[in-house]
């Protein structure tokens, strides 16, 4: 393993299948703590599939099968003793489209904490404020916490979803194309948040400029394989693999 920096996610020779279709081929990768890691590649390349392996959301896909191992914080998340529910509480996720529940902003944020048995109002209030501040949304919504989250703008909704995930104080935040349904201004706000978050974030994006703007490391996936993984600056300026170069130059023009 890499010396010095702390590895938080480590995948070892991961193969993943949907039924008979092999979606991921022999993926090995080490992702460092407190870094933003971007995953890029053409659609269908396996980047989202890999992301969803990290919090076991692929368990719900019929016919899902896996070989190899994935470690988070040193623990095997597909080992015999791993509990998917606990893993999902430790690894937060933000989805492609903002998906707040049809509840108030407050109840959205408290959803996770309540799942783990936190009932005291004072504690929940505190967690809500903390999570909303962390998602840079507190000032905008502090006076309407009891309003439906569905009444907010798209960008605000997505930040509610971020806050909702943060309320569980996860070790890692997974983001699956979190700005693809947002307008440019809302996108900028979410990107700004990612850059300042200072936590371990794995983000899937189809937008290479976005990867270049916000990530420390970038992984390029193609047809289910991890082609190249390295510091973002290097990958975008001096790609080692021809396939990577073709992809990024094709997009950058």
């Amino acid at each position: 393993m890499v010396e010095g920096d702390q590895v938080i996610i480590s995948a070892r020779e991961v193969d993943f299948y949907y039924g008979d279709f092999q979606a991921l081929k022999n993926i090995s990768i080490d992702i460092l703590k407190d870094e933003v890691t971007a995953m890029i590649g053409p659609s269908g390349c396996g980047k989202s599939t890999f992301l969803k392996l990290l919090n076991r959301m692929n368990d719900f896909v019929p016919g899902a099968r896996l070989a190899g191992e994935i470690f988070i914080g040193g623990e095997s998340i597909y080992g015999p003793d791993a509990d998917p529910v606990v893993i999902r509480r430790r690894v937060g996720m933000v989805f492609q489209r903002p998906n707040p529940f049809a509840k108030s902003i407050y109840d959205n944020i408290c959803y996770g904490p309540r799942l783990i048995g936190i009932k005291k109002t004072s504690e929940l209030d505190e967690l809500t404020e903390k999570a909303l501040r962390a998602a840079a949304l507190w000032d905008e919504v502090k006076d309407k916490l009891n309003k439906s989250a569905l009444d907010l703008s798209g960008g605000q909704q997505q930040r509610v979803c971020i806050a909702r995930a943060l309320a569980l104080e996860p070790d890692i935040l997974l983001m699956d194309e979190p700005t693809s349904a947002l307008d440019p201004i809302a996108t900028a706000k979410v990107e700004e948040w990612i850059k300042d978050a200072g936590m371990s974030i794995v983000i899937v994006t189809h937008n290479m400029q976005q990867a270049a703007r916000i990530s420390d490391k970038t992984a390029y996936f193609f047809l289910g394989e991890l082609i190249e993984f390295g510091p973002t600056k290097e990958l975008f300026t001096r790609p080692k693999e021809t396939k990577t170069e073709n992809y990024i130059t094709g997009r950058f023009g």
Partner: peptide
């Protein structure tokens, strides 16, 4: 009720029934 409600609840560590009872059913 959108699939994304269920996904979001499950991703926050809800069990299947918790997701149904707390998120899907109220909606």
């Amino acid at each position: 009720t959108p699939q994304s409600f269920r996904e979001a609840a499950l991703a926050l560590g809800a069990s299947r029934f918790q997701a149904i009872r707390q998120v899907v059913l109220p909606a």
